[in-house]
Amino acid sequence: MRLLINGEEHNIDASTLEEVVSHFELEPHLVVTEIDGSIIERSNWSVTKLHDGMRIELVQFVGGG
């Protein structure tokens, strides 16, 4: 699957958002996701089907003031 993740192109073997998160070994409870500009709630990660070319954002809390 060819996906645009955080602005970079990735070819990964994943059919749901849940698989993308585990592909990168992210802590699920610390990550927020968006697909093509819409937020996908954590409870919907496993049922959200991916398609070629989707734009995915994986964001988190970082240090800041």
């Binding site: 993740i5 955080n6 602005g7 970079e8 990735h10 990168f24 070994e25 992210l26 802590e27 610390l30 990550v31 927020v32 954002e57 994986l58 964001v59 988190q60 809390f61 970082v62 240090g63 800041g64 003031g65």
Partner: peptide
């Protein structure tokens, strides 16, 4: 405590994940 929201660095995903250092403590984010 204040935080910023940024893209996860997919090359080093846990590097900036600040909340992992605060687990077990109770704050208003």
């Amino acid at each position: 405590l204040t935080f910023a929201i940024r893209r996860v660095n997919l090359g080093a995903p846990n590097e900036d994940a600040i909340l992992q250092h605060l687990e077990g403590m109770s704050f208003t984010y």
